[in-house]
Design a protein around this nucleic acid. Structure first.
Lengths: 122, 122
DNA sequence: TCTTGACTTAAACCATGATTTAAGTCGTAT
DNA sequence: ATACGACTTAAATCATGGTTTAAGTCAAGA
């Protein structure tokens, strides 16, 4: 298996090292290995988990829920149903948020038009 | 002109009164009037500003920027250009965020499919 | 008049999600 | 051997956006 350092993981996903350490402490990156000098080794599993964590963060899932999800991933197949339910609910929350933003954008667009018009007739 | 109490404003937009007081203190609701007993009176202008503030919050504009925008609204027509530029930039930021979320949603959908399949073949 | 309910204030407190700090350990190139 | 850069830790600090608290004022109905 291939391992990468915290510096490489940081560069790969453009996440500060401090944030990666924070994520480990928060249980978002469990089972982290270390080299003889105590430095973190990110295995392919950690990198895959990290990618998942980042996806969930991009869609505004709170750390608390991400921690639960990751714990279920580690726990294995017996938690498939729980993970399916969680992701299904989360998907709906994300769709709702996108709808809210899209709707608010209409009001913003309206103002942009109004400001443009005002600058024209000046 | 029609005035409404903080309680009515709170009920209208489903925002806690404490939050409305906080917004006023943060400069998001300026020029607030008061009755003889010192209670806030939301004029139609305050209600319109509040609606704008809520729209900007729904699209994740930081309070700091909302404050600047509202100050420009109060300042009047001489700030039209500044407001147009700010809203144009903000619109792009919102579109970027929606794109990021939509993209992350693909990874989430993929997992949902995988979990569903796994539960089928059980 | 007295109680109730809605309101007021400033200041303290809370939650979330990091980031920074201070002190120290390694491994490698000069 | 020593200096450099990359790494380590726990704990303190920060930013953002509110929420809660404690003490008090006021108007209207019983």
């Amino acid at each position: 298996m291939k391992y990468v350092s915290i510096g490489e993981a940081s560069a790969t996903y453009k996440i500060p090292e401090s944030t990666l350490r924070y994520y480990e402490k928060q249980g978002l990156l469990p089972l982290m290995e270390r080299d003889a000098a105590g430095r973190r080794l990110f295995s392919e599993m950690q990198m895959a988990l990290l990618e998942t964590v980042l996806r969930l963060k991009q869609t505004h899932m709170p750390i608390h829920d991400i921690r639960q999800y990751i714990a279920w991933v580690i726990e294995g197949d017996s938690t498939t149903r729980l993970r399916l339910d969680m992701m299904t609910k989360h998907k709906q929350a994300v769709l709702d948020e996108i709808a809210t933003m899209t709707d608010a954008l209409k009001g913003i667009d309206y103002k942009i038009d109004r400001y443009r018009g005002r600058l024209q007739n000046k």
